[in-house]
Design a protein around this nucleic acid. Structure first.
Lengths: 195, 195, 195, 195
DNA sequence: TATGAATGAGAGTTCATTCAT
DNA sequence: TATGAATGAACTCTCATTCAT
């Protein structure tokens, strides 16, 4: 029997890594990072505890890998939006994208918030977490400036507060929250009503 | 050494309990509930672990007691506000009260959010946590209705989102967040601009 | 029931610490440091694993504490010998003391050698280990110089080699080794034969 | 690609085995047997863990093989020396050979000592270790007897002690130890001074 | 022959909780 | 009321060994 090819090994690795990351994300989001044991992740992912450590040097590195994935997704979104020249369109699409994203990746968002409010995790995680909120603010300031707002910074903070508040409420209440209606209202309020 | 009177005992009890709850609140807020050990609380509060278990049957009961205190404060606030008959005044005072409270008790608020997004802690805690947001919504709906809004429920949710978003941003960024300005803007937007 | 007095606690602590250190020393000497698990130490010492960590922050700190004890004993011996003015007497008493000591504390000596030849243990341990051999050499150089030797340094190294070689053989072979005879011969050779 | 001949296979085998043994010896000597992982040996030897287990059934068997090699070398030396009829010459050559060997194979010697003082490794290893010191003693007794010593056994033990002590010091101190000078002195003392 | 993914037992360590005093 | 010694379960992590390919 000839040994597996490097490609075969690579494929196995990739599949397992994804499997573990997905399971870990779900559990971290459900129970919090500290409350989730490595044993639980391994059990739910259907692998042995030992195998996890073949792919991730520590529980924290696993968390880091998950956050990096999310960050990459975010970056992609921002890049895509930057090519939209009309500021209203850009804002519209951004709202659309965020509301879609939060509904599709509830786990990511829950995890972010719980990490953001539990600073003991570690510096490396904190650094990843800090990237995101600032990006939203900067994005909004730029859009409102182009839209001719008198005080774009204040409006951006207000917009960000309303947006994040809605998302937070949705993450807390789930389907009981009128997300679609709030999205529509946000759109009306910050994009369409402005002239 | 005359034996202590019952009153003295009671006073000692109360003081000790407060000491423990304050220390625990601070540590829970700083490090997260799970990341805070009972030993650490006892050490920082200057009491023995054994004594802690005289007053609280478990770590979770200690958390519960802290949350109950917060709930009581909240209830008190709501009761006080309900005596204000003019809805605009009532809303104004509510905003005032919340912004003041969050600045004076950052620890409470940080703890709430971190618990809200780490549901595994336990049912009893969850039930306490659920009380509060709903109270805010109901309060706002009532005010907006009295103010003659067309869709008071939608406006209440929007108001709550903006408010909670601001508070969340403040808890994250601390003094770097323009809290006073946002409070003023919130006031203008949801109270004074409405006619 | 009144609580235990600080003295009572202190006594308990001291007794337990001694108990654990003695057991650990024996096992470390028998099996080597790395081969001895904390569980084994706890089991043989008749305490729980957890208790060990009340007294020592880590397995390595336990080792360190044991080595410090040995170092203190050594220092005491050196100090005592320095008050002997006649170099021959001093050398004689030193040999006497070392041979007695090695027979009474086989465990210490086995542990030292195994640690000295297993450098991975850690810097802090290494530093403690380095103290001792040099002390022997310096001691012998001084004595031989006072005894008028032509090349006291060379003689000191030779003496140290013979001495350490004997001790090593004794530690390896135990009662099968003619320790008393070798001690007598060492004495004759390095003290009495010289004039 | 013509299929490899059996000789080629055999050559590959031998080369691989040597490679693994050399790497293992180095790591065992540097870090100690217990502190060296099979993975580390495989990695540093540039082979897979699986292949290692093709050649050696266990980590301990690998150690055993290394020790057997050393034993064979030793035996060879003893055999070679036995053909020297003059006891002084024989002793001289033995000292020469040992000092040369220890300088060329520091790893072997460090490993031996660390194993000798960490007996828990296993019986089979212990048996191999016991062979060597006894061989030195027997060798010296025979030489001193032929040289007409009054108490050849005592002198042999003294000689062995001085020799092993020197080697131990050298292994500990490395180039800081005056090995050449001590070798010369040993020679003078135990061979040339005797008449 | 050769690979490295996979396992599971056991390592060191932490911590909520109990209890004798 | 008050102490902290003591426990044991659960934690994160390591590693010799196996095995499908």
């Amino acid at each position: 029997m000839s040994p597996r090819t490097p490609q075969q090994f690579e494929e196995i690795r990739t599949r397992r890594i994804d499997q573990i990351k997905q399971t870990a994300l779900r559990l971290f989001a459900e129970r919090g990072y500290t409350n989730t044991s490595v044993s639980a992740i391994a059990r739910e992912a259907g692998v042995s505890k030992g195998l996890m450590y073949n792919y991730f040097n520590s529980k924290e590195e696993l968390l880091h890998a998950i956050l990096e994935d999310a960050l990459a997704l975010n970056l992609e979104l921002v890049t895509r939006l930057q090519s939209v020249s009309d500021p209203k369109d850009r804002l519209r699409q951004a709202i659309e994208a965020v509301f879609t994203h939060v509904q599709q990746h509830v786990d990511y968002w829950r995890l972010f918030i719980s990490l953001a409010f539990q600073p003991a995790v570690s510096g490396i995680v904190q650094r990843v977490l800090d990237h995101m909120p600032q990006a939203v603010i900067d994005f909004a300031i730029e859009a409102f400036r182009q839209m001719g707002h008198v005080d774009p910074e204040r409006d951006a903070w207000f917009f960000a507060a309303a947006l994040d508040g809605m998302l937070m409420h949705y993450l807390q209440l789930g389907s009981r929250y009128p997300l679609a209606e709030m999205q529509r209202y946000l759109m009306v309020h910050f994009v369409d009503s402005t002239e």
